Simulated scan of single mutants.
Amino acid sequence: MSLQWTAVATFLYVEVFFVLLLCIPFISPKRWNKIFKSRIVQTIALYGNTSFMVAMAILVFLLIDAFREVRKYSVTEKVDLTNNPTAIEHIHMKLFRAQRNEYIAGFALLLCLLLRRLATLLSQQASLMASNEAFKKQAEGASTAAKKYMEDNEVLQEKLRDAGIEVPEGGKKGAGIQEENKTLKQEVKTLKEELDTTKKALQKSDSDVQAMKKQAENLTVEYDRLLDEHSKLLASSDKKSD
C-alpha cells in the first residue's frame, strides 16, 4: 500500500473510532456539548471548516483516482490473456488494489460527512434539551402562579360571601370568566373604598377621642383648681366668723 493510501486508511480508522465514540449511549448530549464548547475544541474549530473542506477535496480526488484505476484494470473481459497467466495475475492484483482503494476512499468520505453530521445533531439535541428544561420550569412556574391565583380567587369569594356580598357562580349561564373576574375586581375595588372610608372614620374617631380625653384632663385640672379655691374660701370665712 502506497503512502497516500496508508494515510487514508489511518484516517478511516480514526473516523470509525470517533463515530463509535459519539454513539456511546451513556455519554449524554449535554456532556458532548460541553466538550464541543471547550476552549481546545473551539480553537480547533476555528480552522476546522477549512480543514474539513480540504480533507473532502482530497478524498474526492482519491476516490476519482481509485475509480479510474478500477476501470483501467477491468480489461480481462475485453482482452484475451488466456495464454499469459502471469499478466492475468498481475492485472487481478492491480484491480484488487484499485477496488480496495476505492472502498477506503469512499468509506472515509462517507464517515467524514457522518462524523460532522453527528457532532451537529448532538449539539442541537443538547440545545433542545436545555430549552426543554427551561420551558418546563417556565410552565411549572406558570402553573404554580395560576394555582395560587385560583386559590386566592376562592379565598376572596369566601370573604365576599362572608361579608354578605353576592358572588356570581362560575356555572351560571351567561356569566363568563372574564365577566366574573370583572365583577370581582369591581367588588374588590368597592371593598377597598369602604375600607379606606372606615379607616378614615376610625382615624377621625381616634382624633375625637384624643380631643375629648385632653378636654377631660383639662376639666379635671380646672375642677381641682376650683375645689382648691373653694376650700380656701371656706377656710377664710371660718376665720372671719370666729
Score class of each variant (00 low, 15 high):
F67S: 08
V75Q: 07
A45Q: 02
V8T: 04
G141K: 11
L81H: 04
A87I: 02
A134S: 04
T190G: 02
S131C: 05
E77M: 09
L202E: 14
A130E: 15
A7G: 04
I91W: 01
T198E: 04
A163P: 01
K240I: 07
A45I: 00
L227I: 06
S51I: 02
E151M: 06
G164L: 04
Y103M: 13
N84T: 09
M129V: 06
S237K: 12
T198C: 04
L128D: 13
M212V: 12
K199H: 10
A216K: 12
M1I: 11
L195D: 10
M150I: 14
V155F: 15
V54T: 07
S131A: 13
L113G: 12
V75C: 07
I40K: 05
G141Q: 12
G171D: 08
S231E: 15
R39A: 13
I24Y: 05
I177R: 09
Q124P: 04
G170F: 07
C23K: 12
R71C: 03
F17M: 03
P168N: 08
N84H: 10
L3P: 00
F61H: 06
M56A: 08
K232F: 05
L219D: 15
A130P: 02
K136F: 09
H230P: 01
S2A: 06
L59V: 12
V54K: 05
E154V: 11
V16I: 11
L195V: 08
S207K: 10
G176H: 08
M93C: 12
A201V: 07
Q215E: 15
T6S: 13
T6A: 14
D152W: 11
T198M: 03
L3S: 05
A163R: 06
L118P: 02
A211V: 10
E158T: 06
K72D: 01
T82H: 09
D162T: 03
G170I: 08
K148H: 12
L63R: 10
F26M: 05
P168F: 07
E179Y: 04
E69L: 07
Q203T: 07
N132G: 09
S241H: 14
Q42S: 08
T190A: 07
D228S: 15
K137Q: 14
K72W: 01
A66L: 00
E102P: 00
V75I: 15
A119S: 15
K173H: 14
A119C: 15
Y73F: 12
Y73C: 01
A146G: 03
